[in-house]
């Protein structure tokens, strides 16, 4: 592949990925409102379009036409930069996530991901942890008490749970022996005992790591039951109290894009990525892996919303104690046990 084709293919993939991702973000918001509505015995959005399906569009238009208030007491450069940092970090991490196997389009063989890096997982961890800057700077630069408290809480919570999150991935890395997301998925191909798929959640005893990852990821994305930074009952809206219109929408987009990234990573690392039963014609066999991948991601997003509709919020001291005194020792124990089993077996 020469340089021109390479750039062209990457550009096309970038545009498609962004369009899909932004649509997915918009419809995750719709799904959340709809599902939480039904959980709470309401209908959710119904007015705009059939089943309220055009609601995200209406929201977008409304965000455009709202007054964007920049209060005089804020530190303006960081106040404007913070939502942009948050959303750029949230969206960029999608660029290394593979959604399927290699495909051949018009005689050109290409992987279904923007770029295949041998340190893909590290890139995702790095970029998503940069997201804490957006939140912390938004809280500080707003120069309002609620914002500052929300920003502080968010940064303390995100850094605390990042350790357990990082440690829970090490078991998977030991089993796969690679940072490349594609190789991690390839290591989970096949099945054992005849029918159970060799996904990390079943095979290699990574089910504990899976739950540690999921819990920490909920805390990282500031979602219920860990949504202390934006606890409405005590902090109004936390770090984005002073934001309005499009800048507020950017924090929202960042949160939902992060949810999607977390769901993708959980699928790739623990649920075998795009592996699933293949059958039918050749064309169907090309499409099915992508379908399985998207289905698993959808399940994770649904669980996110389900949890939001079910669980109450933690208290802040409980949150910190849970992260440091329970998840961290558990993650270390899981890592040592996985290491011991793999070392004894080889």
């Amino acid at each position: 592949m020469n340089v021109g084709t390479f750039i062209l293919v990457s550009a096309i993939k970038t545009v498609i990925a962004l369009l899909v991702l932004l649509t997915a973000v918009a419809y995750t918001v719709w799904l959340e409102r709809k599902v939480v509505g039904h959980i709470q015995n309401r209908w959710g959005p119904t007015r705009v379009g059939p089943f309220g399906l055009l609601q995200p569009l209406a929201d977008g238009v409304k965000f455009m036409f709202k007054e964007d208030l920049v209060p005089p007491h804020v530190y303006k450069p960081l106040y404007i930069a913070a939502p942009i940092i948050a959303v750029v970090c949230a969206l960029t991490s999608i660029s290394v996530i593979p959604i399927g196997n290699w495909v051949t389009v018009g005689g050109l063989r290409t992987p279904l991901q923007i770029t295949d890096l041998n340190i893909g997982l590290l890139i995702i961890l790095g970029i998503t942890s940069m997201g804490v800057y957006g939140v912390a700077l938004a809280g500080w630069s707003s120069n309002s008490k609620y914002s500052l408290l929300g920003g502080l809480r968010a940064s303390a919570q995100m850094v605390s749970y990042e350790i357990s999150l990082g440690l829970s991935l090490i078991g998977v890395l030991i089993l796969a022996g690679s940072f490349s997301l594609r190789e991690i998925v390839d290591a989970q191909a096949g099945s054992f005992w005849g029918f159970i798929p060799k996904w990390n959640i079943f095979y290699g005893g990574q089910i504990v790591a899976f739950f540690i990852y999921l819990t920490s990821a909920y805390a990282e994305t500031n979602r219920i039951p860990f949504d202390l930074p934006e606890a409405e009952t005590e902090l109004v809206a936390g770090y984005h109290t002073e934001y309005s219109a499009m800048k507020f929408a950017m924090f929202f987009m960042a949160e939902y894009a992060n949810m999607i990234t977390v769901s993708c990573v959980a699928t790739l690392l623990f649920l075998g990525g795009w592996h699933g039963p293949l059958f039918g014609a050749a064309v169907l066999q090309e499409i099915l892996p992508v379908f399985w991948f998207l289905l698993k991601v959808f399940v994770f997003l649904f669980i996110y919303i389900w949890v939001r509709g079910t669980l109450p919020r933690f208290r802040y001291d409980q949150l910190m104690a849970f992260g440091w005194k329970f998840l961290l020792p558990l993650a270390i124990a899981n890592l040592v046990l996985t290491g011991l089993i793999v070392a004894l077996r080889s």
Binding site: V15, I84, V88, T115, D116
Partner: peptide, 18 residues
Amino acid sequence: QNYVPIFLFMAVIAVMIP
């Protein structure tokens, strides 16, 4: 060269978000 698309991606976002 596999790192190039990431920068391309960031450039597109940097234009598209503001």
